[in-house]
């Protein structure tokens, strides 16, 4: 049984349909990337899984149960965390406060979990009492990921984690994602930087106009002539 199984999902905003029968599977501990042109609905897939869009039809199964129409707060409790692309930290709060709020629904063990994340991202420990808006873009992205990891999710969804980062930080950011994946968390990632994402992930999907046009291992997609020509710039 797959951790996440999205079947023929149709979803959108209001009267607008963005996703037209999307199929995506994420196995336990797997690293899955969604690539594709602008406006294909990549981010909408994640928002739909997280209960933030208008569900129209299809199924979203998580650990065997249907979460197609579950509210966001229920989905968080089931072990899915989501890092949006923009405005993904609380800028006027300190780094530590961002992480504390990431664990708002935890009954106990929050401090220990924050310490674990500080060990994983030492720079955040050094800056824990700084206002998050004073951190660099790369560090803020780290805060955003750490905030989503406080609950120790089984599935972490990352929306364009490398967008807007300086080139040398993009590489570093991908390495952090590898590191998170090694700790056993499954990752579903949307990336603009398609080649790098496909090189690192287990499997990938190419999303075009709200449909999954290609699905294969990352390496196979990188080597696929159609995918290369149409979506990876040759």
């Amino acid at each position: 049984m797959a951790l996440l199984n999205v079947k023929n999902l149709i979803a959108g905003y209001g009267d607008l349909r963005i996703l037209e029968k999307v199929n995506i599977v994420v196995e336990e501990g797997e690293y899955v990337a969604i690539v594709g042109p602008n406006g294909a609905g990549k981010s909408t897939v994640m928002k739909s899984i997280f209960g933030l869009t208008k569900y129209i039809d299809g199924k979203i199964m998580y650990e065997g149960s249907d979460i197609s129409e579950s509210p966001t707060e229920e989905i968080i409790k089931l072990g899915i965390s989501y890092v949006p692309q923009n405005e993904n930290v609380f800028p006027n709060l300190t780094v530590r406060e961002n992480l504390e709020l990431g664990g708002y629904i935890m009954k106990n063990g929050r401090e220990e979990r924050i310490q674990e994340l500080f060990d994983q991202f030492p720079i955040l420990q050094a800056k824990q009492n700084d206002k998050t808006s004073t951190l660099s873009g790369g560090q803020q992205q780290m805060v955003a990921m750490a905030r989503a990891l406080v609950l120790n999710p089984k599935l972490l969804m990352l929306d364009e984690p490398s967008a807007g980062l300086a080139p040398d930080l993009v590489e570093e950011n991908f390495e952090y994602v590898d590191q998170i994946r090694e700790s056993g968390t499954a990752i579903l990632m949307v990336e603009q930087n398609a080649k790098e994402a496909l090189r690192r992930c287990d499997r990938g999907y190419v999303l075009v106009q709200g449909k999954d046009r290609f699905a294969d291992t990352g390496k196979a997609l990188l080597n696929d002539e159609h995918v290369r020509k149409e979506f990876l710039g040759g």
Partner: peptide, 8 residues
């Protein structure tokens, strides 16, 4: 919005 998706 972020508060909502953080589980607050």
């Amino acid at each position: 919005d972020l508060a909502l998706i953080t589980g607050i």
